[in-house]
């Protein structure tokens, strides 16, 4: 009797028609704007095919590229567990923040990633949060993106009203910047974390160099696009994906070019923190 019941259950399972909700076998990557609307192991786009093949070889299991109409549809599929990896834009990611995380984001150019930067103000000024920097005159040490546009964007992402900023003061280096800050020529010295370390760490443990300033902000700009996985992906698999993708521009440039076309640009991929696509959260 039990054996017969078991056979019936097996038969029923075999007869159950495949539905749109049944995820196909393999490692599934959701991408908006693919030529194919279903999951495929043979995308028509040559660069997409190169990426799929590269990843399949490295992961040692079948890889499918799954096309969707837009980023929101990709996000929905990831939420439903239909995908293992998704290329998302920031607005589509936001609703998934509790169940998913970005692992990689595009790097604009060789010198410019999502730079970790700080805004320093005088303790006596009371400007100790991004919001309180409204109306400030910022001081920058370079017009290069890594020292200017990227930190400025980061500040805005953390709630600073950068549009209210007075015209910026540009100085030669961080030492000159601190001097200008102390002289009242500006209200916030905005520099990379590396420059802050050069400025404030000093060479003698007994000397405190930046005792009169406070970090009103420290952070990276929000990633506008990224490669996203569910939080329940095993850690070792997540790092394997990171390790494969950060070298993609060197090992398979055409595959990187394909991803860049779906990520709104980028010359390479950098790892990200879990909160990289959440505005104002470090």
């Amino acid at each position: 009797m039990i054996r017969a019941l078991g056979s019936i259950l097996v038969l029923l399972a075999l007869m159950r028609p495949a539905t749109a909700q049944t995820p196909p076998a393999g490692f599934r990557i959701g991408i908006a704007g693919l030529a194919e609307s279903a999951c495929s192991a043979s995308p028509s786009d040559a660069a997409a095919a190169a990426y799929r093949k590269h990843l399949e070889g490295r992961l040692g299991k079948p890889v499918l590229l799954c096309g969707y109409g837009d980023s929101k549809a990709v996000a929905a599929a990831l939420q439903e567990g239909q995908l293992d990896l998704a290329i998302l834009d920031q607005p589509s990611f936001e609703p998934l923040a509790k169940i998913a995380r970005p692992i990689l984001a595009p790097r604009a150019d060789a010198q410019t990633g999502r730079v970790l930067a700080v805004a320093l103000s005088l303790k006596s000024s009371g400007r100790d949060t991004p919001v309180k920097l409204a109306g400030s005159r910022p001081i920058f040490i370079s017009k290069m993106a890594a020292s200017y546009q990227v930190p400025l964007q980061g500040l805005a992402d953390y709630g600073a009203d950068t549009k209210s900023f007075k015209p910026a003061l540009f100085v030669a280096d961080e030492q000159a910047g601190l001097k200008a800050l102390r002289a009242g020529q500006g209200d916030a010295l905005i520099i990379t974390a590396g420059a802050r370390q050069r400025l404030c760490r000093g060479d003698d443990p007994k000397i405190i160099l930046c005792g009169d300033v406070v970090e009103a902000w420290r952070g990276r700009p929000t990633a506008q696009t990224g490669l996203v996985v569910r939080n329940n992906l095993p850690e070792v698999d997540r790092y394997q994906l990171v390790g494969i993708h950060i070298a993609l521009h060197q090992e398979r440039p055409e595959a990187m070019a394909f991803l860049a076309s779906k990520l709104a640009g980028g010359v390479a991929l950098d790892p990200t923190e879990a909160t990289a696509m959440q505005k104002g959260i470090r």
Partner: peptide, 20 residues
């Protein structure tokens, strides 16, 4: 193994972002 190399590279590279 390549997977070992990829995992190690990914883990080491991610540290700067995940635990500054």
């Amino acid at each position: 193994p390549q997977a070992f190399q990829d995992v190690t590279r990914g883990a080491m590279a991610a540290l700067a972002y995940e635990d500054p």
